[in-house]
Simulated assay, not measured.
Amino acid sequence: MHFNLAASILYGLVLSLTQLAFKKVVKRENFRSVMDMIIYQQLVATCVTLIGLFASGEWKDIKMEMEEYEMGKASYVLVLTFIAITWQIFNIGGVGLLFEVSSLFSNAISFLGMLIVHILGAVFFQDQMHGIKAISMVLAAWGFISYMYQQYFDERNTPHIGKDSSTLEG
Rank of each mutant, 00 (worst) to 15 (best):
I92T: 10
A6P: 00
F54W: 10
N91V: 12
Y69G: 01
Y11N: 04
G57N: 06
A7V: 00
A140P: 01
I109N: 09
M137R: 02
L104T: 14
E169W: 10
Q19R: 15
M71Q: 14
M66V: 07
Y147C: 06
V26F: 05
M148E: 10
G72W: 01
W142Y: 15
L20G: 06
A134W: 10
K73W: 05
T86W: 13
N91Q: 15
G94E: 14
M129V: 14
T81N: 02
I9N: 00
V138E: 00
V123S: 03
A134D: 09
I135F: 09
A55W: 13
F125S: 08
K60R: 13
Q151E: 11
K63R: 11
A84G: 15
P159Y: 01
F153V: 10
Y147H: 11
T81C: 08
F125D: 11
H118V: 06
S8M: 04
Q41T: 14
Q41F: 12
L112D: 09
G52F: 12
Y11F: 07
L53V: 05
C47Y: 02
A122K: 11
L15R: 03
L15D: 04
F99H: 12
S102K: 07
F99C: 05
V95E: 04
M137L: 02
F54T: 11
W87L: 13
L10F: 07
G121E: 13
A7L: 02
E58C: 04
R32V: 10
V95L: 03
R28M: 04
V79H: 12
L43P: 00
Y40L: 13
I161S: 11
L53E: 06
Q150G: 05
N107W: 10
I83K: 15
L112Y: 09
Q151Y: 01
V26Q: 03
F31T: 12
C47A: 11
E169C: 02
I9D: 03
M66I: 08
T81K: 06
Y76Q: 05
I116W: 07
L80M: 15
I135D: 02
F99N: 07
T158H: 05
G12P: 01
H130R: 14
M71E: 14
S16G: 12
F124C: 04
M137I: 01
A122Y: 12
S56E: 07
G72D: 05
